[in-house]
């Protein structure tokens, strides 16, 4: 039931055997998955991957490792052609949409450009383009404290895109959004991913439906249980769903598709066991 004309190419992100221990607690225990370039005939298609898992399972810890902010105790994270990914090469939009509160939105983007090596003029031009793309042109001179949650989220994503990046990690991007805002964010994620063939967006969330609606792959992060149902510390990838193989990616009206609903139910059931 794969989507016609779709195939996979090279590995763009490889997470292998990542382990992390905090004090006496094993948080991650051999997390392994890879993301491959999605190829579609006549369409630039980036990758959108959902990393699902219950609260406290270690999703954000894994995000920090992928972003190069924390080193793992063991394991590796590699990008296209096996390149390493130090901090600064992977864009991250944290859950609270951080921005420099003492700078205007326009300035926030310009600073990101300057840090990324652009000349001032180039950074200003890029900031202006992005603010228009993200519907924030009329908020350019506002401070972050003057924006609504949705505007702040868009500004935070735009800031990560001033300098072109292959990877963007979004931590709980659907949290606290109303249905209209959720649709907007979902569209934004897909649009950003499709800006370049090798763009990869990893969405870390526990919102199953929203995650499935934007992704081409779903990875479920969870812990094992012993014979008596007790949690064994140390999360790993417990299940993988290829939504392209299932014919459930890149389509309008997915949410009403009976097969989508059935898969969502299956994933939800699995989620409860994590």
């Amino acid at each position: 039931m794969s989507i016609p004309g779709a195939s996979v190419g090279e590995v763009v992100l490889a997470v292998e055997g990542v382990k992390l221990r905090l004090g006496e607690t094993q948080i991650l225990d051999g997390v392994t998955f890879d993301v491959r370039d999605r190829i579609r005939v006549d369409a630039v298609t980036g990758q959108v991957v959902a990393l699902l898992g219950p609260s406290g399972v270690g999703k954000t810890r894994l995000l920090r490792i992928i972003a190069g902010l924390d080193p793992p105790d063991a394991g590796t994270v590699r990008g296209v052609k096996g390149e390493s990914l130090p901090a600064g090469t992977v864009g991250v939009v944290f859950q609270d949409y951080p921005l420099l509160r003492h700078r205007t939105i326009d300035d926030n983007l310009v600073v990101a450009g300057r840090i990324g090596g652009l000349e001032r003029e180039g950074a200003e031009k890029r900031a202006k383009e992005l603010l228009e793309t993200f519907g924030l042109a009329d908020r350019a001179s506002f401070y972050p404290g003057q924006l609504s949650g949705g505007q702040r989220q868009r500004a935070a994503i735009a800031q990560q895109l001033v300098v072109p990046r292959r990877f963007l990690l979004l931590d709980e991007p659907f949290s606290g959004l109303d249905p209209a805002a959720l649709e907007d964010v979902s569209k934004l994620i897909v649009d950003v991913a499709n800006l370049d063939e090798l763009n990869t967006i990893v969405v870390i969330t526990h919102d199953i439906r929203a995650a499935m609606s934007v992704s081409d792959s779903v990875y479920m992060l969870g812990r094992d249980h012993d014979g008596e149902g007790r949690i064994i510390p140390g999360a790993k990838i417990q299940a993988t769903y290829d939504l392209v193989d299932e014919g459930l990616a890149w389509q309008e009206g997915l949410l009403e598709n009976p097969r989508f609903v059935a898969l969502e139910k299956e994933i939800r059931g699995r989620f409860r066991e994590l």
């Binding site: 902010l69 600064g88 090469t89 992977v90 951080p98 600073v111 990324g116």
Partner: peptide, 19 residues
């Protein structure tokens, strides 16, 4: 998170201290 935010933008530590 404010330091991490600047690190993911690729800022050096002196730039992070200033900003």
């Amino acid at each position: 998170s404010e330091f991490d935010h600047m690190r993911v933008l690729g800022a050096s530590e002196p730039v992070i201290v200033w900003e």
